[in-house]
Design a protein around this nucleic acid. Sequence first.
RNA 1: GCCCCUUUAGCUCAGUUGGAAGAGCAGCGGACUUUUAAUCCGUUGGUCCAGGGUUCGAGCCCCUGAGGGGGCACCA
Length: 505
Amino acid sequence: MTDSPDTSAATTEHGLAAERARRLDHVAALRNDGTNPYPYRFDRSHTLAEIRSAHGGLQAGTETEVAVAVAGRILLKRDQGKLIFATLRDRDDEIQLFVSRAVVGDDLFARIDDLDLGDWVGVHGIVMTTRKGELSVKVSGLELLAKALRPLPDKWHGLADTDTRYRQRYADLISNDDARRVFAVRHAIIASFRRTLAAKDFVEVETPVLHVEAGGAHARPFTTHHKTLDMGLYLRIALELHLKRLVVGGMERVYEIGRVFRNEGISPRHNPEFTMMELYQAFGDYSDVMAITEELFAAAARDAIGTTVIDVNGLSVDLAEPFRRVRMIDLVREKTGVAVHPSQSVEALRSLAAEHNVRTEAQWGSGKIIEELFEALAEHALIAPTFVTGHPVETSPLARVDRNDPHLTERFELFVGGRELANGYSELNDPVEQRLRFEDEQRAKEAGNAEAGTVDEDYLRALEFGMPPTGGLGIGMDRLTMLIANVPTIRDVILFPTLRPEVLD
RNA sequence: GCCCCUUUAGCUCAGUUGGAAGAGCAGCGGACUUUUAAUCCGUUGGUCCAGGGUUCGAGCCCCUGAGGGGGCACCA
């Protein structure tokens, strides 16, 4: 490997190309020596975390007789002449390799010296601590498990360029602790949800992503096409309508954690594909699912970060405490000083909106204007967790009318840090009323509202078989992860966020 | 879709008034038996995002475009 001929690419290329060429030469030299630079497997006896938990308290300058076989990636190397110190990392931890020329012999020492940062290795050795007390594996044997051809990002600063971090998430995960932390939090939250729901006898199901009707939410869908059936299809914008069909079918408690797609803008809070958890519980109403929401959030925080106290825009919030509940119309009254209600005339509400510089459209009814007033005046100020309830019927076509007020629904949206995180309601289960609501949606769509829904005849047929009273809930898992992991952008909680295609040379 | 910011070595970043493109890390060569962002000596490495323009001269000024970020709009 040191005697690569002068004709090798490494001597003619520059920069990154030279670095790759040098490492490729190295791979070729290993093969010439009969060493497979990409062997098939390695028998590991311990993870690095297991070693740390068993021997973390070892006194400085101690050598045990514990033989281990560990595997990981070489991140740092400190060549000290006849000693080499290297930092090895596996999925959860790092440990130092201690390599003594006197122990491993000249040949292996030279091969270890030749390792590049980024190489994967399998190591045999014994557990020890150095004079300074650093837990280490004293290497007796080492084999290359996979050669890295490209140099790692900066060993101290990691990868900082946002573009590169999102496009080359592998490099981000290698070099940035925080990236690894955030995705560990994300996994812990999802695992926590599954445990909480399993304990409540919910059944996890999978429903179609390809929809003939894009219903269950107000959003512009993606379209696609099936070749053999020669038909247009939508990617789902919500899980709702299929899950409720399952409640009709008698499954009683169902949930799905799945990807939904909305063909809308991209922002620090919006990715075109994102993950929703939706659940439906027979015999319950919106009060039941508000309680479940609080329980899911508190358990997820506890499981993911070990505490229910989180920071929201500089405000310390304890998710274990009940969330504030307030009606949408009361929030609008607080902000405007005027009592509002969907029973009021469109004209009166339109002039109130104009007073507060809230733009309205001609086809909007009273309920839609109230919701716009709420979004413009009150939403951004809801920092601590707040259930906003009592949405107008006009903007909630799948929610059941409030048992005490025919103009409002038994619906809530949960806001934290000024962002919507969850949405739920007492589900409308009267097929006759549901048809009327769908027909209103259809009219709005025909009037040019691309986000409006259509009449889903199969869903109506399902409701005609009878759906028990049901409470439903949807939670945006990406936003919940942002909240608990305390990161400012949704791209930091999605492994591969949507980007324009990279131009490769 | 509109507005603002940004793009310099593999990575992290400087670059003054428009006057010879730099540092640290990584790499390469050398020293070093308890280092830990090891240290020390030497050293390679550039389409300054792309294309135009102004100028004796452009990384820097102007125009157009591209990627990314933020805001608005849309939305969860």
